[in-house]
């Protein structure tokens, strides 16, 4: 009980510090009265409707960040090459990717990250089994710039990193 209360206090203090830092940066260290009032209102709101923060494992964050940054660079470079050299778009098309993450927030985050990967852009998140949408399994409908490329491996790699960071184990076959 004591440990739980301490952990909660630590989380609240961390969030207040982060909010104060953002406020200081965005307002050039001014208007602290408004910050205190706003913070009190936010804490009151949290007391009545607590927002559950997802469990994350920060030790895997650098790996996720490096993977994402590398793929963002490659994605932008690919687009720039196609734009400058007017490359043909003979193999563009749509495809679906069976998402292995189960939590809706994680699926949404993956869909957002995928839009910044090389050659892929999320169009929709659809239930895997339209007859039973309550199972939580989804497929990502993607627009692919080059359907002949191995885009699945890149999406699977970022999905695996995300699952590791969000402490959400993937099914057994998900070993890259």
């Amino acid at each position: 009980m004591m440990f739980k209360s301490g952990l909660l206090l630590l989380k609240v203090c961390g969030l207040i510090s982060l909010s104060a830092l953002c406020w200081a940066v965005l307002t050039a260290n001014e208007g602290w009265v408004f910050f205190v009032v706003l913070l009190a209102l936010l804490l009151l709101w949290q007391g009545y409707y607590p927002l559950a923060l997802p469990k994350v494992r920060w030790r895997y964050f650098p790996a996720l960040l490096f993977t994402f940054a590398g793929q963002l660079w490659r994605g932008a470079f690919d687009v720039a090459r196609r734009a400058f050299f007017a490359r043909q778009f003979a193999h563009t098309g749509f495809a679906t990717y069976a998402c292995r993450l189960t939590a809706p927030a994680q699926q949404q985050l993956l869909a957002t990250l995928v839009s910044l990967l090389p050659g892929t852009c999320t169009v929709a998140i659809l239930p895997k089994n339209s007859a039973k949408p309550s199972t939580g399994e989804v497929v990502l409908m993607l627009h692919i710039l080059d359907t002949t490329a191995n885009w699945q491996a890149e999406v699977a790699a970022i999905e695996w990193q995300l699952a590791r960071f969000m402490a959400s184990p993937l099914p057994r076959e998900a070993t890259l």
Binding site: L72, W73, G75, A76, D78, V79, A80, R82, A83, F84, A86, F89, T92, S115, L116, P118, G119, C121, V123, H143, L145
Partner: peptide
């Protein structure tokens, strides 16, 4: 490159690739 892609890419889905990726990195 992002702006050129917006003009040169053939359909609206491909143009979305150009504006998101190139502009974000830019």
């Amino acid at each position: 490159a992002g702006s050129l892609g917006l003009l040169r890419f053939p359909d609206q889905f491909s143009r979305l690739h150009a504006v998101t990726k190139a502009d974000t990195l830019g």
